[in-house]
Structure formats: structure tokens, C-alpha cells
């Protein structure tokens, strides 16, 4: 199976000061479900940011979706991002937009027709059990519901890779389980690669997964 992400001696830092990730070597294949864990400040989110081009590697090589993330051009990065699904701990929904408009943001960016956007929004909101909330605004929803909107947005364009940064960090147990189910389904049914940064791997997880951990020195290991 082809690699979706490949890192060779990957080194990451902010403003080239203290190195956060040091000489990381790993590869993530299509259809993999990967958890990245580690203590606070170890660089989990930093590593995830480098996967969607929010942080340029200082050294080594990082290839995502066949694109070299060190020399990536702005238009190529935009194209790559339009094929990714990204979920954040703080949801990052556009508060002045309705739930429906938030869900179809990736489709709107890619210029899909309004008809397609409407159909997809309906299907996705049904999938995340938020039917009937199309015209609501994010601030009118609970945290768990907002995160489900975030997941629906991430799934909108059938991405080849979903990146999630602490997706259940702010949620109660019930809402967390709903989010994990959605992620499992995306990986299992759609063969989408999923990379999740989390403090804690859920107790019950129904599909095989890989577990990477980052230690306090910024070294990345895979736990078998």
C-alpha cells in the first residue's frame, strides 16, 4: 500500500530556535488509523501542523500526499489542504455562518454548485446525527454538537487524510464516543487515513490502529 505520509530525519521547530521534533522517521500508509500521544508540550500538535503545511520542516524530509512539504508552493499547498479533513480541539467553526454553511466550507472553496453543497450538507448532518440543525449557528450548539459539525466539515470532500488535534479534548464521554465512532467509520468504510493527536487513546476502539508516541526530547517512536 502507498504511503500517505513519509518522514525522514524530520526536524521541526518554531522560528528555528529550540528543536521540538528531532530526526523523526516514520511512514503512514493509506487506510491507517494512527494515534499520536505524548506528554504536554512534547510536540504532538507541532507534528500534526507540519502535515498540513502550517509549519515548514527545518531539516530532513516530509512528504504528504506525494508532495514535498519543504519546498511546497502556495498553490500546491492550497490544493493539498482542499483534499484534507482537519478537526481541531476548539472546533474552529465560523460563528457568523450557519451549521450548513460551515459543513460545506471545503465544497464552497472548491467551487461545487449550491445544489451539490445542499445535498452533501443534508447527508453529512444526517451522518453526524445533526439533521434539522442546518440553519442553527455554532454558538447555539453544545460543544459535542459543534465538534460533530467539525467532523462533518472534515468529511465533506471525502478527504484522503483526516488530521485531528485533540478532537475530544473538550468533550464529555458520550460526545467523545460519537466522535470516535465517526472517525472509525471514515477509516474503516471509506479507507481514509486518519491521524489523531490525543492525550489518551479511547478504552474501546473497534478497528486496528497504530500508536506513535513522542517523548520529552522530541523523539518519535512507534509502540507495537
Amino acid at each position: 500500500m502507498s504511503n500517505v505520509i513519509t518522514a525522514n530525519n524530520l526536524t521541526l521547530s518554531y522560528d528555528s530556535e529550540e528543536e521540538i521534533i528531532k530526526n523523526a522517521n516514520f511512514s503512514i500508509k493509506k487506510g491507517d488509523f494512527v494515534f499520536i500521544t505524548g506528554p504536554s508540550g512534547s510536540g504532538k500538535s507541532t507534528l500534526l501542523k507540519s502535515f498540513y503545511g502550517n509549519l515548514t520542516p527545518d531539516d530532513g524530509a516530509l512528504v504528504v500526499g506525494g508532495l514535498d512539504m519543504i519546498d511546497i508552493k502556495k498553490d500546491k499547498l492550497q490544493e493539498l489542504r482542499s483534499h484534507l479533513g482537519i478537526v481541531f480541539q476548539d472546533y474552529r467553526l465560523i460563528n457568523e455562518w450557519t451549521v450548513e454553511k460551515n459543513v460545506v466550507l471545503p465544497l464552497w472553496i472548491s467551487g461545487y454548485s449550491e445544489e451539490v453543497q445542499k445535498t452533501q450538507a443534508k447527508r453529512l448532518l444526517h451522518h453526524v446525527k445533526l439533521s434539522g440543525k442546518e440553519e442553527k449557528y455554532p454558538m447555539e450548539l453544545s460543544g459535542g454538537e459543534q465538534q460533530r459539525v467539525g467532523v462533518a466539515r472534515a468529511l465533506a470532500k471525502n478527504p484522503f487524510l483526516i488530521l485531528a488535534d485533540e478532537p475530544t479534548g473538550n468533550l464529555d464521554e458520550y460526545s467523545s464516543n460519537v466522535i470516535w465512532d465517526l472517525m472509525e467509520n471514515a477509516c474503516h468504510q471509506l479507507d481514509t487515513t486518519v491521524v489523531v493527536v490525543t492525550h489518551r487513546i479511547p478504552m474501546v476502539f473497534n478497528i486496528p490502529y497504530r500508536h506513535f508516541t513522542i517523548d520529552e526530547n522530541g523523539s518519535v517512536y512507534e509502540i507495537h
Binding site: 492550497q78 493539498l80 489542504r81 482542499s82 474552529r92 467553526l93 465560523i94 455562518w97 466550507l105 472553496i109
Partner: peptide
Amino acid sequence: AQRMKIMEIFGASLFL
């Protein structure tokens, strides 16, 4: 700013 940052993460061009 917040809306533009979110849109940028999802690959929106500067014009969009």
C-alpha cells in the same frame, strides 16, 4: 481574521 484563518487551513485562495 478568525474566518480567514479557518478558510486558509481548508485551502481557500487569497481572493476567496
